Amino acid sequence: MQIFVKTLTGKTITLEVEPSDTIENVKAKIQDKEGIPPDQQRLIFAGKQLEDGRTLSDYNIQKESTLHLVLR
């Protein structure tokens, strides 16, 4: 499924993921596309910060959901 990741600069990254993918996994995909190390990434969905060990389905993230990427 496709999800979108919006950065603070207003750029939107499109990722191909599975509901069973972990947040860690998603961060690795963002690193592949954008070169941002996962340890600098914070992903936010519905106002919650997403934890590395959880999966997209844990957070009920469905196709075409938009996550927000904050760098630390």
Score class of each variant (00 low, 15 high):
residue 23 I to D: 01
residue 64 E to S: 04
residue 4 F to E: 10
residue 62 Q to T: 13
residue 63 K to E: 07
residue 28 A to P: 01
residue 15 L to F: 09
residue 40 Q to W: 07
residue 40 Q to Y: 07
residue 64 E to Q: 04
residue 31 Q to W: 07
residue 49 Q to M: 04
residue 29 K to L: 06
residue 22 T to F: 14
residue 29 K to C: 02
residue 55 T to P: 13
residue 39 D to K: 11
residue 56 L to V: 09
residue 69 L to C: 02
residue 70 V to Q: 15
residue 7 T to C: 02
residue 27 K to L: 13
residue 35 G to V: 04
residue 59 Y to F: 10
residue 25 N to E: 12
residue 39 D to S: 08
residue 42 R to A: 13
residue 50 L to I: 06
residue 57 S to Y: 08
residue 47 G to N: 09
residue 62 Q to R: 05
residue 5 V to W: 01
residue 52 D to M: 13
residue 27 K to M: 14
residue 52 D to C: 02
residue 15 L to C: 02
residue 34 E to Q: 03
residue 14 T to M: 14
residue 20 S to I: 14
residue 25 N to L: 09
residue 61 I to Y: 01
residue 71 L to S: 14
residue 12 T to F: 10
residue 22 T to P: 10
residue 37 P to D: 12
residue 72 R to D: 13
residue 40 Q to K: 03
residue 11 K to A: 13
residue 24 E to D: 09
residue 30 I to K: 00
residue 50 L to V: 06
residue 63 K to W: 11
residue 70 V to W: 04
residue 69 L to H: 02
residue 71 L to V: 04
residue 11 K to Q: 13
residue 65 S to V: 14
residue 14 T to E: 08
residue 70 V to E: 13
residue 10 G to F: 02
residue 61 I to V: 10
residue 5 V to F: 05
residue 72 R to G: 14
residue 53 G to E: 12
residue 3 I to T: 01
residue 66 T to V: 11
residue 46 A to V: 11
residue 30 I to Y: 07
residue 19 P to H: 07
residue 10 G to H: 12
residue 68 H to T: 11
residue 32 D to W: 10
residue 19 P to D: 08
residue 70 V to H: 15
residue 62 Q to S: 15
residue 7 T to N: 12
residue 64 E to I: 05
residue 1 M to H: 03
residue 40 Q to G: 14
residue 6 K to D: 08
residue 12 T to Y: 09
residue 68 H to G: 12
residue 31 Q to I: 07
residue 22 T to D: 12
residue 32 D to R: 10
residue 44 I to N: 15
residue 2 Q to F: 07
residue 32 D to C: 03
residue 58 D to E: 14
residue 15 L to A: 03
residue 51 E to S: 03
residue 44 I to D: 15
residue 30 I to W: 01
residue 51 E to R: 02
residue 26 V to S: 01
residue 59 Y to H: 03
residue 28 A to G: 09
residue 53 G to F: 15
residue 51 E to D: 09
residue 12 T to I: 12
residue 34 E to Y: 04
residue 15 L to V: 06
residue 22 T to G: 06
residue 72 R to M: 11
residue 3 I to W: 00
residue 72 R to W: 12
residue 57 S to C: 02
residue 8 L to I: 06
residue 38 P to R: 13
residue 25 N to Y: 13
residue 9 T to C: 03
residue 53 G to R: 09
residue 42 R to Q: 07
residue 57 S to T: 14
residue 23 I to Q: 04
residue 24 E to H: 12
residue 69 L to I: 15
residue 12 T to L: 07
residue 5 V to Q: 00
residue 2 Q to K: 12
residue 38 P to S: 10
residue 42 R to G: 15
residue 33 K to S: 14
residue 31 Q to M: 08
residue 30 I to D: 00
residue 24 E to Q: 05
residue 57 S to E: 15
residue 23 I to G: 02
residue 62 Q to L: 11
residue 59 Y to K: 01
residue 43 L to S: 00
residue 18 E to M: 09
residue 5 V to E: 00
residue 26 V to G: 00
residue 31 Q to L: 05
residue 3 I to Y: 01
residue 58 D to C: 02
residue 65 S to G: 10
residue 5 V to S: 01
residue 63 K to F: 10
residue 38 P to W: 15
residue 68 H to K: 14
residue 58 D to Q: 10
residue 25 N to D: 03
residue 10 G to D: 12
residue 71 L to T: 09
residue 28 A to I: 12
residue 10 G to K: 03
residue 9 T to F: 04
residue 41 Q to H: 15
residue 48 K to Y: 07
residue 28 A to F: 13
residue 49 Q to G: 12
residue 36 I to C: 02
residue 31 Q to K: 09
residue 13 I to F: 15
residue 34 E to F: 10
residue 54 R to V: 08
residue 19 P to Q: 15
residue 23 I to C: 02
residue 67 L to V: 14
residue 13 I to S: 08
residue 53 G to D: 07
residue 4 F to N: 13
residue 28 A to M: 05
residue 7 T to I: 13
residue 64 E to D: 11
residue 9 T to P: 08
residue 18 E to C: 03
residue 6 K to N: 15
residue 36 I to M: 08
residue 60 N to D: 09
residue 38 P to C: 02
residue 64 E to N: 04
residue 14 T to V: 08
residue 69 L to V: 12
residue 45 F to L: 15
residue 11 K to N: 15
residue 66 T to N: 09
residue 53 G to S: 09
residue 43 L to R: 00
residue 22 T to S: 03
residue 55 T to H: 06
residue 44 I to P: 00
residue 17 V to E: 01
residue 38 P to Q: 11
residue 2 Q to T: 08
residue 57 S to V: 05
residue 41 Q to Y: 12
residue 29 K to S: 10
residue 36 I to N: 07
residue 6 K to G: 14
residue 6 K to V: 08
residue 7 T to L: 11
residue 50 L to H: 00
residue 59 Y to L: 05
residue 69 L to N: 01
residue 24 E to K: 05
residue 40 Q to R: 04
residue 44 I to V: 06
residue 3 I to C: 01
residue 11 K to Y: 05
residue 54 R to H: 11
residue 50 L to E: 00
residue 23 I to W: 01
residue 45 F to Y: 11
residue 20 S to H: 08
residue 47 G to W: 04
residue 32 D to E: 14
residue 51 E to Q: 03
residue 27 K to N: 04
residue 38 P to M: 11
residue 16 E to V: 05
residue 70 V to D: 08
residue 2 Q to I: 06
residue 48 K to P: 02
residue 34 E to V: 09
residue 66 T to C: 02
residue 72 R to H: 14
residue 60 N to I: 07
residue 28 A to W: 11
residue 42 R to W: 11
residue 23 I to V: 15
residue 64 E to T: 04
residue 19 P to K: 15
residue 41 Q to S: 09
residue 29 K to H: 04
residue 60 N to S: 14
residue 2 Q to Y: 11
residue 4 F to W: 11
residue 25 N to W: 05
residue 37 P to G: 09
residue 30 I to S: 01
residue 36 I to Y: 05
residue 37 P to M: 12
residue 41 Q to I: 05
residue 44 I to H: 12
residue 39 D to M: 04
residue 62 Q to I: 15
residue 6 K to C: 03
residue 49 Q to C: 02
residue 56 L to M: 12
residue 40 Q to D: 04
residue 64 E to A: 06
residue 55 T to K: 08
residue 67 L to W: 02
residue 55 T to C: 02
residue 50 L to W: 01
residue 1 M to Q: 05
residue 10 G to Q: 07
residue 18 E to Q: 12
residue 45 F to T: 09
residue 37 P to T: 15
residue 20 S to W: 08
residue 46 A to H: 03
residue 23 I to F: 02
residue 40 Q to I: 09
residue 38 P to G: 06
residue 6 K to M: 12
residue 16 E to S: 05
residue 60 N to E: 07
residue 37 P to V: 12
residue 52 D to H: 14
residue 11 K to C: 03
residue 57 S to M: 06
residue 3 I to A: 01
residue 21 D to R: 05
residue 71 L to Q: 02
residue 60 N to C: 02
residue 69 L to Q: 14
residue 59 Y to R: 01
residue 20 S to L: 15
